[in-house]
């Protein structure tokens, strides 16, 4: 081997620390952290702050690990879609093998550490969440059924339930309701996105609802899920985690969300194309606020309760 041959390798695409961090889908992780934190804080029992912090961190790492495994499996699709072309694997910075090893290692570490830091129930739900998101959703159903978002939504809905389990060591109606809010919210949120990002999904061959059933059917689905979401979200107000603050917020937010869904339902394609999907884009933005404010209101109730003034 000559000296010259040493420098023939191209290192211009070497991954940086940030590329590995990007594999964890930081934006999704922030939602996981927030909802898990709320789940932990509104629980009737408290944990040591260090235990709480570590538990949230391991839940976030577990969520991030499933994101990395999702990117490993979806690399071919990500390379086709405009929204995902810049991700570390399609851009050639991280190899699929590296992402897979990274994801599996972090997932195992997160589950074991959560079990040690908190309890086996929380670790068990985290393990199930990772399995559900990676194997059931990403590998199994995402490319098979137009109801993929409904199934995928379940994986994203588990974090508050895990947070609750960290504090209480189990599952109860309150944590099931927090799960249900995110589970029912996910389909209208993503279908609104799919309405104006349809071309990307068509190109990638993912059977999103607008691709398979058409946009009319998607608009109907958005309305139905939004109507079904309202009683679940408002119902949580009458459990031990609810109170007047949450009830007021939930009623106002659900009326706002339903009004948006009705607006989308009444529009036809011509109107949507004419204003470049303005209503759909607005509904998507409102949906983000909707979820954030619901959990924010639950958090507010929890904090008020700790001062003896929240709740019923």
């Amino acid at each position: 081997m000559s000296d010259a041959s040493l420098n023939t390798q191209d290192f211009s695409n070497d991954a940086s620390f940030g590329d590995f961090f990007a594999l964890l889908k930081p934006r999704v992780m922030s939602l996981v952290v927030f909802t898990a934190f709320v789940g932990l804080l509104v629980a009737p029992t408290s944990v040591h702050p260090v235990v709480g912090f570590a538990s949230i961190l391991f839940i976030a790492i577990g969520g991030g690990a499933s994101g990395a495994l999702n990117m490993w499996w979806e690399a071919d699709v990500d390379a086709v879609m405009k929204r995902t072309q810049g991700r570390p694997i399609p851009s050639g910075k991280v190899t699929p093998g590296e992402a897979k090893a990274f994801g599996i290692t972090l997932a195992a570490m997160a589950v074991v550490m959560l079990g040690l830091a908190a309890n086996l129930a929380a670790a068990g739900i985290l393990a199930f969440t990772i399995f559900f998101y990676v194997v059931v959703y990403t590998m199994g159903l995402k490319r098979v059924t137009p109801q993929n978002i409904v199934i995928g939504g379940a994986a994203g809905a588990f974090p508050p339930m895990i947070g609750w389990a960290v504090a209480t060591g189990g599952v109860s109606i309150e944590s099931v309701l927090m799960f249900s809010i995110i589970f029912m919210w996910t389909p209208p949120h993503f279908w609104a996105l799919a309405l104006f990002m349809n071309d990307d999904y068509t190109k990638a061959g993912i059977p999103m609802l607008p691709v398979v059933r058409g946009r009319r059917s998607t608009r109907n689905h958005i309305l139905v899920y939004t109507l079904l979401l309202a009683p679940v979200a408002i119902g949580a107000a009458f459990t031990s985690i609810g109170g007047p603050v949450y009830l007021t917020a939930a009623v106002a937010l659900n009326l706002w969300f339903i009004a948006g869904a009705v607006n989308i339902w009444r529009r036809d394609e011509d109107a949507a194309i004419a204003d470049k999907y303005r209503a759909e884009r607005k509904f998507f933005r409102v949906s983000l606020l909707y979820l954030f404010l619901h959990f924010g209101a639950l958090l507010a109730e929890g904090v008020l309760r700790s001062f003896g003034i929240g709740g019923w």
Binding site: F17, H48, P49, V50, V51, A54, L57, L116, A117
Partner: peptide
């Protein structure tokens, strides 16, 4: 450096957890 600092933070966290428990 990123990996090193992450590992250091992990050690500190496990130490803190042990003390808290």
């Amino acid at each position: 450096m990123g990996v090193g600092l992450t590992l250091l933070a992990f050690v500190a966290l496990v130490y803190g957890l042990t003390v808290a428990k």
